[in-house]
Design a binder for these strands. Structure first.
Lengths: 113, 113
DNA sequence: TAAGGTACCTACCTGGACGTAAGTATTGAG
DNA sequence: CTCAATACTTACGTCCAGGTAGGTACCTTA
């Protein structure tokens, strides 16, 4: 797996935790304020419920996300970023900046979609 | 595609360019000095030739990598990072740092492999 | 009785990322 | 005439992230 190499630059672990289609976006959304499941579903309209819950669970297992259950009726669950999650989101900021700055150049080649 | 959202945080374009299993590693390897095809193949022993050339071509198309052909015999090709490539690699540094710092915590949950 | 809103869970399927293995063109060395 | 070494190219197969669609349990309102 070229593990030694991948880990030597630290990106292996990072990508294993934030990789995939949705996690970065979810982390970004709960970074500032706790969000309910249904709220996230509405904020990311193209995600399926299965994916949303799956990503949240994985992020919870990785210690990026805190899950708080309110024993009410109807049920209510809030997801928020842990300090670790916030630190990861911070580490993503430069990449996001880069993406914004060069979005056009890149978008040009992917004009479709 | 939740494009507006994904782009609003800039990570969409960035991931579309550096995502996947190999690109970040390749970029990291050619960042400091030009590398030959066979050299990269040796440095990333688990990559197949097909994947290597495919990733290099995509990165070239995205303007991250420069390809220089020496018309010699035997043939010789050198790949190097463009300024854009270097800037992207810079943007990845904080993420790599984060990965290094938390590699253990993460690795613990993926003990296998 | 039934309809609607939470927050999930489960089985099944598809597309594309990725891997494997073989072939190409060139030329010098033996 | 064959072999080695370069940098690819091509056909084919596999596997899993992600998508689809339906179901669960609970309570409220009408």
């Amino acid at each position: 797996m070229a593990k030694k190499l991948a880990e030597s630059c630290g990106l292996g672990p990072a990508f294993s935790v934030i990789g995939g289609k949705w996690k970065a976006l979810i982390l970004w959304l709960i970074r500032t304020e706790p969000r309910r499941f249904g709220e996230l579903k509405r904020l990311v309209p193209d995600i399926s419920e299965k994916m949303l819950i799956q990503q949240l669970r994985e992020m919870e297992a990785h210690g990026l996300v805190h899950r708080k259950v309110f024993h009410e009726v109807p049920p209510r669950v809030e997801y928020s970023a842990t300090p670790l999650g916030v630190s990861l989101d911070d580490a993503l900021v430069p990449l996001a900046e880069w993406g914004k700055q060069h979005a056009e150049r890149i978008g040009a080649q992917q004009a479709a979609e």
